[in-house]
Every structure is written in structure tokens, then in C-alpha cells.
């Protein structure tokens, strides 16, 4: 049982961090960013390049992933999403654009970083073994703690900084925020950059554990969408809750259902369908949007 909880918490922390960026972008701009997984992959490859190719410390790689993905996110918002949102009132326009960006990033990643699985050396050696009740490598514990620290940092940023308050105001009511003097264009761009940066940071963190390859983008996006469906789209606390719930469900399923084959995600998807039929707005979402 202890092992299931430890695995669930570790998975939940990384999932929550992935979902945060996606829900932030959705709350600010009403955009379903299908390219979120590709941004995660790009972040992983940037860290890999900095650490394994240039031989620089892991923290430099992580910072590079954050900076590059923030820049990519800002550019995507300014030059692609902002003009489309301005010209088209149809929500599917931004969805199609996001899907197009996902395909484009996949192609760019293949061209620049190649088809191979990549990874960086372990940042910590050794395994915690608590009387065989919890077995957890130290690097996973560190990554889990870092992910939780980043989630806490993000919450504090959103709660106590001017930019955070402005973005929360935008998420609540875009027009009211504009009338109150919030620079909507600027904070939309900052929000998108922050969302992309979070995706890049998780990619950079996890490249030390799971490695990275170009095919990981799509499945990562799907999991992120599941998390925000569980927690409620556009709600930050919902994304965190969704991440930890999914992580815990996965951990429980993989341990208790292993004897029946790979039915964990079948059970998760079936549970999600039933849950959404009862509560379509998710745990913390509001039915009116």
C-alpha cells in the first residue's frame, strides 16, 4: 500500500505540473492547446542537448528549457493565436491552429533532434528502500519534490504577483479585466508563455527519468486533457487535483489490476466517462464555464 501511494504521489506531481500549463492557457484564452505535449517533448530535448551534448549542468538545461519554451510560447501566442482569435469568433479555428502547431512541432523535433530515444545521466544515484515497503530511487524523489515545489511556486506567483492577479482577472472575465485597465494582449502572451514554460520544465525534469522521444507528445497531451477534465477545465486547483487523481488511479490500477492484463487505462477511461456524465464540468469547474 505504501508503495502504491508513493508511486501515485510521484506520478501525480509530474502530471499536475503538465496539466497546469494546459489549464492556464485554456483559462486565459479559451484555447485547447493540442500542442502542449509537443512543447513538453521540446523541453525534454532542449535539456538533453544542453546536458548531454554541451556537457553543462542539469540545472542549466532545465533553465534553458524554461527560457526557450517560454519564448516559443510567447511567439506562438503573438504571431499565431492572437491574430486568429482577433479575426475568427469560431472556437474551432484555434483548435485547428493548435493541432497544426502540434504536427509542425513534431516535424521540427524529428528534423532537429532525430528519431532516437534520448536521455541524460541520472542526477542522483541510489535507491531508498524502506524495509521493502517503499522502494523509490532518490532521483525520482528529487524530481517529485521539485515538481511539487514548482507547483507551489506557480500558485504563489498567481496569488501574489501583479502578473498573476492580472491573469486571474483575465480568466474570470476578459472584458471586465480589460475595462479595469488590464493589458489583455500582454498578459495573454505572458500566460501562454508561462503555460509553455511549464510544459518545457516538466519535459526537462523527466528527461532524467523517462528519457524523451518524438512520439511522446500526443499521449502527453491526451493525459493532460484527461486531468483537466477530471479537475475542471480552466481551474488551477482542478488541474492539480486532476493530476494527483490520475497519478493515484494509475498507480493503484497498475498494481491491483496487473494480473488481468493492461486494463488500467480501460478502467480509468470508463470511470472518466461515467464521471463526466454525472459531472461534466469536472470536480472544481463551474457548469456555466
Amino acid at each position: 500500500m505504501e508503495q502504491i501511494i508513493a508511486n501515485g504521489l510521484y506520478l501525480g506531481a509530474q502530471y499536475a505540473l503538465i496539466a497546469l500549463g494546459l489549464t492556464l492557457i485554456f483559462s486565459l484564452m479559451n484555447v485547447l492547446n493540442f500542442a502542449h505535449g509537443q512543447m513538453y517533448v521540446l523541453g525534454g530535448f532542449v535539456t538533453y542537448t544542453v546536458v548531454s551534448q554541451f556537457g553543462l549542468p542539469f540545472i542549466v538545461g532545465l533553465l534553458a528549457s524554461a527560457a526557450i519554451l517560454a519564448a516559443v510560447g510567447a511567439a506562438i501566442e503573438k504571431f499565431l493565436f492572437a491574430p486568429v482569435i482577433k479575426k475568427s469568433k469560431r472556437e474551432e479555428s484555434t483548435m485547428l491552429l493548435a493541432a497544426g502547431i502540434a504536427f509542425f512541432l513534431d516535424a521540427v523535433i524529428l528534423l532537429v533532434f532525430g528519431e532516437k530515444q534520448r536521455g541524460v545521466p541520472k542526477i542522483l544515484n541510489g535507491v531508498l528502500n524502506w524495509d521493502f515497503r517503499i522502494i523509490m530511487p532518490y532521483d525520482r524523489i528529487l524530481i517529485g519534490v521539485l515538481a511539487i515545489a514548482m507547483i507551489a511556486g506557480f500558485i504563489l506567483f498567481m496569488q501574489y504577483t501583479k502578473a498573476g492577479r492580472a491573469m486571474r482577472a483575465l480568466a474570470q472575465d476578459r472584458m471586465a479585466a480589460e475595462l479595469m485597465g488590464v493589458d489583455v494582449k500582454r498578459y495573454s502572451m505572458i500566460g501562454f508563455a508561462l503555460g509553455a514554460m511549464l510544459a518545457g520544465l516538466v519535459g526537462g525534469l523527466l528527461v532524467t527519468i523517462t528519457g524523451i522521444n518524438l512520439g511522446m507528445g500526443g499521449p502527453t497531451s491526451i493525459k493532460a486533457f484527461m486531468m483537466i477534465m477530471i479537475g475542471g477545465a480552466g481551474v488551477i486547483s482542478g488541474a492539480i487535483a486532476g493530476g494527483f487523481i490520475l497519478g493515484m488511479m494509475e498507480s493503484i490500477g497498475l498494481t491491483l489490476l496487473a494480473a488481468y492484463g493492461d486494463i488500467t487505462y480501460l478502467v480509468i477511461f470508463a470511470s472518466l466517462m461515467i464521471f463526466l456524465a454525472i459531472r461534466p464540468q469536472g470536480l472544481m469547474g463551474k457548469p456555466w464555464g
Partner: peptide, 18 residues
């Protein structure tokens, strides 16, 4: 011989434990 995994699994610890 019954344990399987999704190709997009990010943590194989719970998969391999049993």
C-alpha cells in the same frame, strides 16, 4: 506473463513491481 504496459508509460516502477 500477464503484465503489460502502455507504450507512453512514464514510470515503469508500478508496472514491474509485481
Amino acid at each position: 506473463d500477464s503484465v503489460t504496459y502502455q507504450v507512453d508509460t512514464t514510470d515503469f516502477t508500478p508496472v514491474l513491481l509485481p
